[in-house]
């Protein structure tokens, strides 16, 4: 249930946010590396100098993705919708004349609160709802990625992220 919900959320926002952030950082890191190479460094030296000047790219990327997700209209709309479902549940539970209607109110409150929590916690930890298969796949990809930057088709961001 949670992973199906996560997939819907991912399709709405996560991928394009990460793609935009990567593209922006990629542009910056690419230009920096070109500049260092133009100044006479080898590609290897240029990568090291870029890392030093840019700082911790993982942290920067994560911060940017997290901030972007907060401002995402779809996330805000989902939060609003779940808050309304919760409120509707409260109204039904308070004003219902009969016990079985009262239960519907409680059900709505639970759905609203849990869904809101899922959206909220996803903003704090993006990998929380990432299916395990995807995580394993990216780890395997990272292992198989060649470290030699000659003939390397990876983007500058991917290179920095994978060269541990």
């Amino acid at each position: 249930m949670a992973s199906a919900f996560a997939r819907v959320l991912n399709s709405l926002s996560r991928k394009d946010i990460e793609r935009d952030v990567d593209e922006e950082l990629d542009f910056h890191i690419g230009l920096l590396q070109q500049e260092y190479i133009r100044l006479g460094m080898t590609p290897e030296q240029a990568i090291n100098a870029t890392e030093e000047r840019f700082g911790d790219i993982r942290r920067v990327r994560k911060e940017c993705v997290d901030i972007s997700k907060r401002q995402r209209p779809t996330v805000l709309l989902l939060k609003l919708m779940f808050a309304l479902i919760f409120l509707l549940g409260v109204m039904v539970a308070v004003f219902s004349p009969e016990t079985h209607v009262d239960r519907v109110g409680h059900l709505l409150m639970t759905i609203g609160a849990l869904s809101y929590f899922l959206v909220y916690s996803r903003n704090f930890n993006p990998s929380f709802f990432t299916p395990k298969s995807l995580l394993l796949k990216s780890a395997a990809l990272r292992k198989s990625t060649p470290k030699n930057i000659n003939n390397d088709q990876r983007s500058p961001v991917e290179r920095l992220l994978s060269d541990d």
């Binding site: 950082l25 910056h28 000047r53 700082g55 911790d56 790219i57 911060e63 940017c64 901030i67």
Partner: peptide, 13 residues
């Protein structure tokens, strides 16, 4: 640090 610019820009946005 160049990287510190981006979270700042995103927060400003």
């Amino acid at each position: 640090e160049d990287g510190s610019l981006y979270p700042a820009l995103y927060r400003m946005q």
